[in-house]
Nucleic acid binder design. Structure first.
Lengths: 113, 113
DNA sequence: CTAATATGCAACCAAATGGTTGCCTGTCAA
DNA sequence: TTGACAGGCAACCATTTGGTTGCATATTAG
């Protein structure tokens, strides 16, 4: 629910990549997520900690492994509560354009407006 | 068009506040935007520079004033290209739930599953 | 012209960030 | 039981970040 933590968690490209990977395959272990990244395991751990703090990822211990799961809720919350504002502004611009087109005489072409 | 710059620009609460203000009233000067903030003008300038670099704000000089305008395009781009993925995941979860409910015998109550 | 207003520029600073290395702990398999 | 594998913890480091102060420049009002 904390917008700030979510925004800040999303600010880093490595973390967005981790989310991407979890999106492609959910429930990966730490080692899975480290695979192919040029980063130490500890760095990845730190990123995951931040993602968990922002509630973008949840985890569960399974024996000696730790499985990570993506949580789409905070992102959707931001999309709805925050981005919708700007979406509305875009729609306003569109409707202004629409009105402009409608109030402009349709069967006559102007050279300049 | 650069996702990273946009995400990073949005990561700071002060910058989101500035966007908020511009959303409420577009075309404000630097001094307008400073009003009531406990930050120096120079700090605000820096934030605006970052927002401009991310293409979230555009500006125009008018005499000795500099007017600032919000640009909703990058935010919508992110919403569409990035957040849609997670939206889809949520819908997947919903349809899984739906299927579960449909395949579960409707007229008989189970004590445990 | 001169003063006030609006902004720009640069140096500086403390704290946060993203990363590392080194070592410790817990769990599973042979 | 003893490695090997998966992960945790802590100290340390360089760079980035968000902010400051001080001064310079440009425009407008009187």
């Amino acid at each position: 629910m904390n917008d700030d933590a979510v925004f800040r968690a999303l600010a880093d490209a490595s973390r967005r990549l981790l989310l991407d990977r979890l999106h492609r395959q959910n429930g990966q272990t730490l080692s899975d997520l480290c695979d192919g990244l040029d980063m130490t395991r500890q760095a990845v751990t730190k990123h995951l900690t931040i993602l968990e703090a922002a509630n973008l990822v949840s985890s569960r211990k399974e024996g000696r492994e730790k499985l990570h799961f993506i949580n789409p809720v905070p992102i959707n919350a931001i999309a709805e509560r925050w981005i919708a504002k700007f979406e509305q502004q875009r729609l306003t611009a569109l409707s202004a354009l629409k009105e402009h087109l409608e109030t402009t005489p349709p069967s006559r072409k102007k050279k300049k407006d």
